[in-house]
């Protein structure tokens, strides 16, 4: 018999071959060794197809439960009432799902916010006075005039985060977790170091000067815009889309307001006046011809009148008070 009878072979493999088919198969096998080889190969294929079957039976009870649940969610078309926009049953079902979800997320939120030691943020606003404080991790902070400093009364173990609007000097305690200073559009990331942050100008200008150690100064919304600052370096952020620049900080007076010290070593008067104006928070105007005069001097716990007196003596200029402004006029560098 030459026609292919593989379906009979299949019946044989399934073990339900009829006696008449059995005879046909036997004849076919007896006809040639080729047929017997084909039979052997078919058996192998048949067995192999068995490996495509699933090995783990499903739990019928839970599958039935799942079906019932899905079935009840589907409202048969005939039972859907016309005009009822809100089906209460459906509403309760959604509520049953969403309510626990909402509760869990609320719980998670409180747990996460509780990471800060369950503590609230404390806001310190300085007016005309400077303030010094020690945070829970031992970090010392000096907050300059007219600044807003926010911190948690207990830090989380992962990150210590504070924020400053205005100016502050930090002596960060080394604890191993990063210390993050949020400064408007920028932030400063450090481990343990001393540095000054100044962002009085509401985001547009932020300056960071490092006295000791190393800090990462970066734009918050674009952390690629960042510089690594080391001791004696100053980073300046001028606004979005401007790369943060880095210069050496010559005058060492960034933290002058902390130490109550001003020191100048051959510094152009223009810079001196800037530092003095900042230190005393006064509006100081310098005559143009004096801008590039070099000035040296040290003041400890100074008063504005003393400093101005020394400058006017060394340049032969006059000090004139007019309204809220102070003018330095006349004189020359030669004096």
């Amino acid at each position: 018999m030459n026609t292919e009878i593989y379906h009979i072979v299949a019946e044989q493999f399934k073990g339900r071959i009829t006696t008449s088919d059995q005879q046909v198969l036997q004849e076919w096998l007896d006809t040639s060794a080729d047929n017997r080889e084909v039979y052997a190969e078919l058996e192998k294929v048949w067995k192999l197809t068995g490996t495509l079957e699933q090995t783990t039976p499903a739990d019928v009870d839970s599958e039935w439960a799942r079906f019932v649940e899905q079935r009840d969610q589907v409202i048969p078309l005939s039972r859907r009432l016309p005009g009822t926009g809100l089906n209460l049953k459906v509403f309760y079902r959604y509520a049953a799902v969403l309510l626990p979800l909402f509760m869990v997320s609320a719980l998670v939120y409180f747990m996460v916010s509780g990471r800060n030691g369950g503590s609230d943020w404390i806001t310190l606003t300085t007016g005309t006075n400077r303030q010094q404080l020690t945070l829970s991790d031992g970090t010392e902070v000096w907050v300059n005039r007219n600044s807003v400093f926010r911190y948690a009364n207990k830090f989380s173990s992962r990150e210590r985060k504070v924020s400053i609007k205005g100016e502050a000097f930090f002596k960060v305690a080394k604890t191993g977790s990063p210390f993050l200073v949020d400064a408007g559009e920028t932030q400063v990331r450090v481990l343990g170091t001393r540095f000054n942050v100044n962002n009085y100008k509401e985001g547009r200008l932020t300056e960071v000067v490092v006295e000791e150690g190393k800090v990462l100064f970066e734009e918050k919304s674009r952390t690629r815009n960042s510089v690594m600052l080391e001791a004696g370096e100053k980073g300046t952020y001028l606004g979005k889309r401007t790369p943060i620049s880095k210069q050496a900080d010559f005058n060492n007076n960034a933290a002058s307001w902390v130490n109550q010290q001003l020191s100048f070593d051959n510094v152009p008067l223009q810079q001196v006046v800037q530092d003095v104006a900042r230190y005393f928070a006064v509006d100081l105007v310098l005559a143009k011809e004096l801008e590039n005069c070099l000035f040296s001097g040290e003041f400890s716990n100074p008063r504005v009148s003393n400093v101005l007196e020394v400058i006017s003596l060394s340049t032969g200029s006059r000090v004139r008070y007019e309204g809220s402004k102070i003018y330095l006029e006349g004189g020359s560098c030669a004096n």
């Binding site: 699933q54 019928v60 599958e63 799942r66 079906f67």
Partner: peptide, 28 residues
């Protein structure tokens, strides 16, 4: 019928989709 046939049906689906969960989803 569901209980009797679920496994043989999901077995059949499995031979096609080759994923136990998906096979069960098909039957469902």
């Amino acid at each position: 019928f569901f209980r009797d046939e679920f496994n043989s049906l999901s077995n059949l689906a499995f031979t096609v989709v080759k994923d136990t969960d998906e096979a069960r989803d098909v039957v469902q």
